[in-house]
Structures are given as structure tokens and as C-alpha cells.
Design a protein around this nucleic acid. Sequence first.
DNA 1: TAAATCCTTTGATAATTATCAAAATCGGTA
DNA 2: TACCGATTTTGATAATTATCAAAGGATTTA
Lengths: 188, 188
Amino acid sequence: MNYFINFLKTLVPLDEPVQKAINEITVCKHLSAGTYLLRNGEICKEFHFVEKGLARVFYYKNGKEVTIWFTNENAIANAIDSLFTGLPSNYNIQLLEDSAIWSLQYHKIEPVFAQYPVVERLGRLLITHNYLLLDERMKLFAFCNAEERYERLIKLMPDVFNRVNLGYIASYLGITQEHLSRIRGKKK
Amino acid sequence: MNYFINFLKTLVPLDEPVQKAINEITVCKHLSAGTYLLRNGEICKEFHFVEKGLARVFYYKNGKEVTIWFTNENAIANAIDSLFTGLPSNYNIQLLEDSAIWSLQYHKIEPVFAQYPVVERLGRLLITHNYLLLDERMKLFAFCNAEERYERLIKLMPDVFNRVNLGYIASYLGITQEHLSRIRGKKK
DNA sequence: TAAATCCTTTGATAATTATCAAAATCGGTA
DNA sequence: TACCGATTTTGATAATTATCAAAGGATTTA
């Protein structure tokens, strides 16, 4: 069975014809760690869903990589700045583990939206959910200093923290690796 | 004519019955500067659209106000963390000028979504747009230091900058008012 | 117009975080 | 086991930004 559609069905009931229509525009790829789903400067034309594995979204700042997002199982990895605008993205999407990724050609979704209102709803719910995730991240920076961000994140996504090296986590927290290391040192 | 619906029609064509349905769940209020549309701890149950005037969204951090968003004409002022989750909001929404605000009772929109797919689409488009705005703000912090943030914002929203006092702008930029003042001093 | 209030700037100092360099640690593997 | 490369920690110093206090400016109002 199409794992991605099963996931969608947890959000909204989908009847057979709708499932079929979605199935026809999605494809599952098995990709190895290190693979890029997108590089900055490119236009993001696919919507990616992680069935198995781990991805990160990052950009370059003064030649250094800064991670802004981790996506693990049952979540979405996208460069929304590009997917929804058609403009080149500032972001890179890279797999950190061997992964199973469901990809959906974004331009093929438009007729499906038009034909099946429930898919329109699905789109709305998915975006709403991701909007809330982004708002959470904004709040994390708004309300917490570096140390508090570290504490909160290790509780929020302990799984990711154990699968990813410190440098990525530090940049996700908006600090240098050295600073993160000192924060951790203090805790013991 | 309902100004809010005219705005919506610039996004998606809406036929008469749909306009009527939306009209029935929206109301325009003329409110004076200083009025709160929401206070932190409350649940945000209305969706607000600014026809005329200016609002800001802010939270309290160690007793100090930190502004995270300005909404001027033809844009949306919401505490989305609460509106979409039904949980108490961390945010306050306050009018900075006498304003004309269109408010929509959020719980009344659900049957309209169900009845008119075009409204579902409208919802999706609105959220997508605001998601992109939030992503832009994240990028601003991710890619730019305080000085660059100032430069970019004064270009992006010069209108707001002229209507709002420095303290609010500083906190929007994520710095103290004193630091902002020094940045400006340097520019001359 | 003067007083009162609010907004903005300036100054001195402190806290936070970054940078660069080097050492320690860890994991895999020859 | 010993070595290699990658990751993490530690140290010394510098840059950025905050804090607290006070002084200027501007605006409103009696």
C-alpha cells in the first residue's frame, strides 16, 4: 500500500478515486545518506514526505552551513519559499540517513485540487500544520535564550538529537558548535 | 460593499452565494488606537483583517513587550498559534491607530468550508501566503545581522516604519531600542 | 508658552556569543 | 590493538548586543 496515502488518511478520510488520483502523482524513492533533494538556487518542484529516514534543510551563510529544519519519519521536507512561489530557493535539502522519500510533482496537484475538494482541504490542513511548526520555531527564538532553546529542543525532538551531530544541532539552535558544547558542559 | 470580500475576490473569484455566506459571518468594527483584539492567555476565536489602520502582535518577555508583527491595510492580524489550535495564545494583538477591522468568527467558517470548496481554497491560499511571510521573517533573522535586518526592513515596509515608534521596531528587529538608535546614528 | 510626558539618543559597563586554534575523544577499521 | 579521520571539547580573545542611567528632543496639553 502507498504509505504516504495512509498518512494522509490519518488527517482526512479519502475515498478510492481520490486515493487513486494521489497515487498517480506520487512516487517513492529509496535514496542514500548525503543525497540532495534540492540545492539552493534551484526551483523546488516537488513536495517531499519522509517515510523512513532523516533529512535536514539548510542554507549557506558566509560559506557556512546553517541548518534550519530537521524532518524525520512522517513529516514533510520542503523548501516552501520556492515550492509555493516558483522562485529559486535559498535552501538545500539533504538526506542525513538512507531514506525512503515520497515525492509529489507539485504542478500535477493543481487539477487534483480542482477535481476533489477534499484534497484542497488536505492541502490546507498540511500547510496549517507546518505553519504552526514554524511559529513554534519563531517562538523558540523569541522567548528563549540559547541555553533554554537547547533544553526545550532536547525534550521536543530527542530522537533527532540522537541521530544528528552537534554541529547541525548548534546551527539549528542559532549558535556555534563551540557555544553549544559549553552549554552542555555546564549541565553536568 | 463588504471591503473584506472585495479583498478576497482579488485572490479567487467568488460567486454570489459564497459572498453571501462569507458576508454573514463577518463583521466590521471601528476601533480606536490602543484597543486590544486579543490578550495573551486568551483563546483567539476570530480572524482579523485590517481595512484601515495598523495593528501589532507582541508578547511579553521578562515583563517587556516584544513586537513580532505589524499588520497594516489589506493584511491579516492573528494569533495563529491559538486560532488554529484552540489553545490560549502567547500573543497580544493591539491597534496602534484608529482602525477599521473585519472580524470573522472562526467557528462559523467550518460549515462554509464544507459547503463551498472555493472557500476551502481561499483558506489554503491565505495560509500559504502568511506562511511565506513568516518564512521571510525567519530568513531575515537567519541571513542578516541586526544592522542588515534594519536596512532590509526599512526598504520592505517603509510605511510601517514611519507610523510606528522606534521601540516597537527595535523589538521587531530583535534588538534593544538603544542598539537600534546606535545603528541609525552610524548611518548618517 | 511652560509644564508635563513621551520618545530618542548617548555614555559607561556587563553579559552573551563568536572566532580561531589546539587538544581531547570517539568510532571504525587495517 | 593501534591508527586514522571525524567529532567534540577546551582555551584565549574579540565582536556583538544588552543593561542601566541620564540627557536631549519632541509633542501634547493646561
